[in-house]
């Protein structure tokens, strides 16, 4: 009985965050922290920070931190409920929009939106690159690896990017061992 309440509460906390997060997972951390650390004794503040930090090490969308919290408070079922609450509402909305988009293929409004959204996308992606670079500390090494990876992908567009990620790790590891990073 108590578990059911926890599952329901999880869904009630996470579903609005699914819709509320526009432009990235950044927006959900503060309300998520408030609901699970401050408003309820589910997670200790240190645990929340650790989960936040460990999400950086994991593949996939970083909003998966919601599912980690679900797992911690209610086990596997909690994780599943959290995943559904996190991703179904926003995906349903995006599906409706994408469907209208596909069905309108070739119509003037769709052609106009397609063309009109392209330069907006370019501006948004480049803004994202700048923001991520600044967020990482804007170090020379980060910039060099970033430019290098992009350059290699422009040169060899079909290259599997995973070796590039490994190479990025190797460059940083080497710099650290050489004592270039403090």
């Amino acid at each position: 009985m108590r578990d059911e309440n926890v599952l329901l509460t999880l869904a009630i906390i996470l579903a609005p965050l699914s819709i509320a997060s526009i432009g990235g997972a950044m927006g959900i951390y503060a309300p998520l922290q408030h609901e699970t650390v401050v408003a309820r004794p589910w997670i200790t503040p240190q645990d929340f920070l650790d989960l936040f930090a460990v999400c950086r090490f994991l593949p996939g969308p970083s909003s998966i931190i919601g599912a980690m919290i679900g797992y911690k408070v209610a086990g596997l079922l909690g994780a599943v409920v959290a995943m559904l609450a996190l991703y179904v509402p926003s995906s349903a909305l995006c599906y409706a929009m994408s469907r209208a988009w596909t069905e309108g293929a070739g119509k003037p409004w769709q052609v106009a939106m397609k063309r009109g959204l392209t330069p907006i996308a370019a501006g948004l992606i480049m803004s994202g690159v700048l923001a991520l670079f600044q967020l990482s500390g804007g170090k020379l090494l980060t910039g060099a690896v970033m430019i290098g990876a992009a350059g290699i992908l422009v040169w060899k567009s079909k290259l599997h990017p995973f070796p590039l990620l490994i190479a990025g790790a190797a460059v940083f590891e080497t710099a650290w061992l050489l004592g270039w990073m403090e």
Partner: peptide, 30 residues
């Protein structure tokens, strides 16, 4: 995991290369 310093360093490098991937996508949009 969080206590392993080399892993932290490696992940920072992975993230830097991932920004490069996003830059590549941005260039294709440009």
């Amino acid at each position: 995991i969080l206590d392993i310093k080399p892993l932290q360093i490696a992940m920072t490098g992975v993230a830097a290369a991932a920004i490069g991937m996003i830059l590549r996508t941005g260039l294709s949009a440009v």
